[in-house]
Every structure is written in structure tokens, then in C-alpha cells.
Simulated scan of single mutants.
Amino acid sequence: MLPFIKTISILISLTLAFFLIHINPVLAENLEQRINSYPNWNNQISLPSPEKELIYPRWFEGNWQVSNILKEQIAPLAPKFETPGFSQNAQYIDQNINFNVKFIPTIMNSNSNKFLPTTINNNQVIIADRGFNARAIAQAYLGEKNVKNVIINQENSTEQITKFSEENELISTVIGRQKQTINKKQFITSEITRQFFRRPNNIYINLVETTTKYELIDPNHITAKQYTAVYLSPQDPDYFIAFNKPVALYFYELNLLKKP
């Protein structure tokens, strides 16, 4: 659902804006091991560059009502360093945030990153409706009046712009992605998102990892545990305090109930 696009995930707070100059391709990570080692994440995860869209198991297809609860937040470098807005995010702990998401059947155009919805082609795959989902999550956290629009790059769906009120905007690009199927009912996704938050006379730069483990309870119920790590960009004046260590960690519990 982003793996929750937040980019579920990411509390879509105005402090999460990101940019990374370079990410080295390495061997694929074991995502289940990554989750099991939380919160002892001492290094930024290395993920391959995304190829087209993230494909989900068939049991994701449909419209879902999501209940999202922040269960824990950690500032690994506190009191030496804490990200702006970290203390404000504490207001979301144990708060039930509700929104809708969609996962849609799609076929990929082999000549580009465009996707064409279909319910006929036997080769259809299931992907997140990123535009709808990103807008729903942002509005749930920030309010409908504060979120004007979410624009997906039609040539490359890994890029999106979220426009807020007062000429603020968040430019997000997925630069790393991986998935792992544990069994028929368990599925893990991980994405690294480069985001750049811009407002008049000010910008924020950062990088976010969102790693999520989904479990199918029954055809109408999915649960998930989601882990988000925030990293400083090399351009940040505090970068050498952290290097590639996370400066903020968030743990969420999600419930997805299928809508009729």
C-alpha cells in the first residue's frame, strides 16, 4: 500500500522530504531478516532499482478500509540528534487513523512504464492505485483542505508530486524496491523513497525506507506490520552525525477490511 506508499507511510508529516545523490546496487536483502532485526537497524537497507510497478499477490485486489496505528517511534541518536517534527509525531501514537486504499488489476505496456487497467487480459497483475492511495493517506493525516492533489508521472509511476496548501509540495521518487513471498498468505515489500519537500523560502531533504509484512487472514481481512526508517541526505549539515544510520524509526500496525 504502499507498501503503503506512505508512502504510508511515513506520517506524511512536513518534515519528511528526501533526496539521495547515489545508491549502489548490491545483492538483494532478506526482508524477513530485516524485519526480525528491528529496531537494531544500523545501516540503510540496499535495494535494487525499481522495474516498473510493484506487483502484489492476487488477494490484494479490491477496495479496502484501512486502520493504521503508530505503535512506536524511536530516535536512535537522541539526545545528540533528533529529526525536526519527531516530537510532534508522538501525537499519533496509539491513534487509529482510517482511510481507503485500492489495489487494481492492470497489464503493463512493455514499451514504457505506463499501466493499462483491464479485467479481461489473462496476464493482468495487481498493483496499488498509487494516486488514490497517496491522496487518501495524506488527507487522513493532514486534512482534506490541506491536500490539493497527487500527480503521478504518467511515464514513470515511481515518481509523484503531492501538492499541499500554501504552495507547499512533496516530490517523491521510489529509487529502491524489493518484494519477498514467504508463503501463500505472507508477503513482504520494501521501498526506498527519495523525497524533496519544498515550500516558499524553505526546503527539506531526506530518505525513507518503508518495509511492510502483510498477512492474509481471510479473503476479506489482511493485517500488516510496517516499519519506517528516516535517513539524512548527504546534503544535510548533520549528515556526518548519522552517516547511513537511521535518525528516526516508526512501527505501525495495520488492518485492512475489504469493502463491498
Results as ranks from 00 to 15, higher is better:
residue 1 M to Q: 09
residue 3 P to C: 10
residue 5 I to A: 06
residue 6 K to Y: 14
residue 6 K to E: 10
residue 7 T to M: 06
residue 10 I to L: 14
residue 13 S to F: 13
residue 14 L to Q: 12
residue 14 L to S: 12
residue 18 F to V: 06
residue 18 F to S: 15
residue 25 P to V: 02
residue 27 L to Q: 14
residue 28 A to R: 15
residue 33 Q to H: 08
residue 36 N to L: 04
residue 36 N to D: 11
residue 37 S to P: 05
residue 43 N to V: 09
residue 44 Q to H: 02
residue 51 E to A: 01
residue 55 I to H: 07
residue 59 W to K: 07
residue 77 L to N: 03
residue 95 Q to N: 05
residue 97 I to M: 09
residue 98 N to Y: 03
residue 100 N to R: 09
residue 100 N to G: 02
residue 105 P to F: 01
residue 106 T to M: 15
residue 110 S to T: 12
residue 112 S to H: 01
residue 113 N to S: 04
residue 114 K to R: 09
residue 116 L to T: 10
residue 120 I to G: 00
residue 123 N to Q: 13
residue 126 I to F: 09
residue 129 D to Y: 12
residue 147 V to R: 00
residue 151 I to W: 13
residue 153 N to Y: 06
residue 160 Q to G: 07
residue 162 T to Q: 12
residue 163 K to F: 02
residue 166 E to Q: 13
residue 180 Q to H: 06
residue 183 N to V: 00
residue 195 Q to A: 15
residue 198 R to Q: 14
residue 199 R to P: 05
residue 209 E to W: 04
residue 210 T to D: 13
residue 214 Y to I: 03
residue 224 A to M: 08
residue 227 Y to N: 11
residue 236 D to P: 00
residue 250 Y to E: 04
residue 254 L to G: 10
residue 255 N to E: 15
residue 258 K to T: 01
residue 259 K to P: 00
